[in-house]
Amino acid sequence: MTVKILYFASLRDALGCAEESFTLPSGVSTVGDLRAFLADRGDRWHALAQGRNVRAALNQRMAGASEPVAPGDEIAFFPPVTGG
């Protein structure tokens, strides 16, 4: 029942965490649910709160908040990209 969560760039710096294995609690069924759950950890995790400019990827594809998450998924959170 675990997923892999990755954090990149300024968001990783703010959280002090690059990667974690996470057991999906009941009630967390989408990317948006997961983000809200993590933001509720408080303190520095407010960097993931609603209104903050955070993007997500699910299994290495850009993902919206409504996309469902399942055990074994890889979910990444990061700031808007700045390549090119």
Binding site: A9, F78, P79, V81, G83, G84
Partner: peptide, 13 residues
């Protein structure tokens, strides 16, 4: 280039 700027996961420091 326009799509890469908004969709490819790169970050500059």
């Amino acid at each position: 280039m326009d799509y890469l700027k908004t969709r490819a996961p790169f970050w500059k420091r």
